[in-house]
Nucleic acid binder design. Structure first.
Lengths: 188, 188
DNA sequence: ATAGTTAATTGGTCTGACCAGTAAAGACTT
DNA sequence: AAGTCTTTACTGGTCAGACCAATTAACTAT
């Protein structure tokens, strides 16, 4: 009846509490595994199970010989991890393509681009050494950076990675130029 | 120099590969820890570190005495934990909200809804027993289902789970009704 | 055939050991 | 006194084995 949680889960909560209450910040070093083991009255193996779990989530980072450090979460490692599971079994590749296009269409609707960005775009389109995939990627990368949402960019990149393993998805050259028309006046 | 990855990470890949290639489906039982240990030539503790990590992710489920089961990952247990760390950053919070809205806005633009779907939506909005979060969730769930893209739904759900750990999310009642106006003619 | 008992299997946890890097302390040289 | 080298201590990484707890499978007696 008692929903006794596992030790590693308790350790997880403890670590979470510890980080909050003791005010650990990204970059700080956490107590060593052995110390935590004593401190939390759990075997080192249990402590490790908890640590490995949140390491996988990208919350901490461990360096052998040095210690365990609280990480800067901006890297969105967890997103990548979740994606590896979520995107993987997306049997219907069209769904992935569609989802990707939603994001692309969104960033295309930025209000304005800087002169430099437009120049970048023109260069990309003119570069004949690039494959269509590369072209597509670089083209939209400019827009995603203009948009500024790091999370969005991360998700899009992952979608890009996963869809590359399938087939191409580029549009015709004309498509990209059409996209640019809208901003063209800015440079002429 | 060699970026030797840790054993538990190798085990992680192996398990992932195993799941893919051997065609495990949600509900299936994975090989036991001891068996995996032999099969992957790693200590049981290392296998456990990997299993515990993906258990936290909600990929698998373990029942003592029974075994380890692949589960249908609707419920990412890690979300709450992750959110408590990652969402301390206000920029990430905003990015998440924005990304979620992009998806929501997209599914709102379906061509038409069935009578039944419209009825569902009306009922949801009228149900005063629902919290604003619940209302928001159910409301859009109808649209996502109407859209049909499973991947999109899954991504949105994840984002939704995350943002439930924040406050502010719901719109005013009027917002939802306005959304419905567009389809109103269908039912009258 | 059924119920009850036993054995085998599975996850949960702990202990202790050893390796492999890193950092700190100490000893030595200049 | 400053710098260099060596040793020590500490930290994570990994392994082997043991025992407990819960479930399932096998077996046995009714």
């Amino acid at each position: 009846m008692s929903e006794r949680s596992k030790v590693y889960q308790q350790v997880l909560s403890e670590i979470q509490r510890l980080i909050k209450e003791d005010g650990y910040l990204p970059g700080d070093r956490l107590p060593s595994e052995r110390r935590l083991s004593v401190q939390l009255d759990a075997a080192r193996s249990s402590v490790r199970e908890a640590l490995r779990a949140i390491e996988l989530l990208g919350i901490i980072e461990t360096r052998q010989g040095e210690g365990t450090y609280l990480r800067d979460y901006q890297t969105f490692q967890a997103v990548e991890l979740l994606a590896s599971f979520v995107l993987q079994d997306s049997r219907i590749k069209e769904e992935l393509q569609q989802a990707k296009k939603i994001l692309e269409n969104h960033v295309l609707s930025v209000d304005s681009l800087s002169d430099q960005q437009i120049r970048q775009l023109m260069e990309i389109l003119a570069d004949s050494s690039l494959s269509t995939e590369e072209k597509h990627h670089r083209f939209f990368l400019v827009f995603f950076k203009a948009n500024g949402n790091q999370l969005l960019l991360r998700i899009w990149r992952l979608m890009q990675d996963f869809s590359e393993n399938i087939e191409q998805d580029a549009y015709s050259d004309q498509y990209y130029y059409d996209m640019l028309k809208k901003y063209k006046k800015t440079i002429e």
